[in-house]
């Protein structure tokens, strides 16, 4: 009886429009105010001549339209081209390294062993730490004078003490450093996702493969990984978006230098739009990312969905 009454009540509640509104209004407000409004503003700025210190005259906002001028100008800028190239290189390279490492880690952490809980906890730590703090730590580790990596290499005799590598000051090394910091940050996240995906495979399936005569590599590449495709897709999708849109790592580590060699789109947008007062250019750079990210998200979700149906 009580259950039936509760059911009736809940049906009544669902039919009451007020409660329904009250329930979803916070979510809608959040999305509209904190995501929708800035996004629309950014699109508007990208087609305008907005600058910090030269306020938009909202009563005649159409007078500020400059068409595709901002996009024409950023596309001609070498900084932008280098930022676009680097954003893609960082994202792709980091995803490849992260996927390899996270897979190895998830295989290693799958079977129980002594201290597995502690190891899992330690691996998860980089993800728990705020990006900026972690990056500042890396800045110190990669410092030109105080780098512990240099100390170790000197001690091992690989590096001359008087001309140490400038981890963040030489083009190739700076690019590598940025990629590795991204990997350091993303590996825990992907490992956790892949561990979940791996544990969702019924254990009879790899066992059947073992009985069918498959060794470790065949089981991994022909059985486990294909079954995990949807979850791999999710990990890559998130990793791509996190890396592509990340501002903190590059901003704190190199701020795009040396000579724009580690410049990325978010950092360039921030430098030009906020620090350089050219709001319109910053917005154009930011908005430039959107179609790319939407396309990536669409592709990944399709891959994930198709694999899921299997």
């Amino acid at each position: 009886m009580a259950v039936a009454a509760a059911k009736l009540k809940s049906v009544g509640a669902a039919r009451s429009p007020l409660l329904g509104f009250a329930m979803f209004t916070p979510a809608v407000l959040y999305i509209l105010l904190l995501i929708g409004a800035p996004f629309c503003l950014a699109i508007f700025y990208a087609f305008s001549d907005a600058r910090i210190g030269a306020p938009i005259d909202w009563a005649h906002f159409w007078r500020h339209f400059v068409g595709l001028e901002n996009f024409r100008s950023i596309l001609q800028s070498p900084s932008f081209r280098s930022a676009l190239k680097n954003s893609i290189i960082f994202t792709v390279a980091a995803q490849i390294i992260v996927m390899v490492c996270a897979n190895i880690l998830s295989i290693a952490l799958e079977k129980p062993f002594r201290g597995r809980g502690l190891v899992r906890f330690l691996i998860l730590l980089p993800w728990v730490a705020p990006v900026s703090l972690g990056t500042i730590g890396w800045k110190w580790i990669l410092d030109s004078i105080y780098s512990v990596i240099t100390w170790v290499l000197v001690w091992l005799g690989f590096v001359n003490k008087f001309s140490p590598p400038m981890w963040l000051g030489q083009e190739g090394l700076a690019i590598t450093s940025v990629i590795l910091v991204h990997c350091w940050r993303l590996i825990p996240f992907s490992t956790v996702i892949l561990l979940a995906g791996r544990s969702a495979i019924p254990k009879e399936i790899p066992e059947a493969a073992a009985i069918d005569g498959a060794g470790f590599w065949r089981t991994t590449f022909q059985i486990n990984l294909p079954i995990m495709t949807p979850i791999l897709g999710v990990a890559v999708l998130f990793g791509t978006i996190f890396t592509f849109t990340d501002l903190a790592v590059v901003n704190l580590l190199t701020n795009g230098g040396p000579y724009d060699s580690t410049q990325t789109l978010p950092n360039l947008a921030f430098t030009q739009g906020i620090q350089g007062s050219d709001l319109a250019a910053g917005a154009a750079i930011s908005v430039f990312l959107v179609p790319v990210l939407v396309a990536i998200a669409y592709l990944m979700l399709r891959v994930a969905h198709r694999a899921e149906v299997v």
């Binding site: 066992e207 059947a208 079954i227 495709t229 299997v310």
Partner: peptide
Amino acid sequence: QSYALYPH
């Protein structure tokens, strides 16, 4: 028991 066919 579950047949353990390879789903993909």
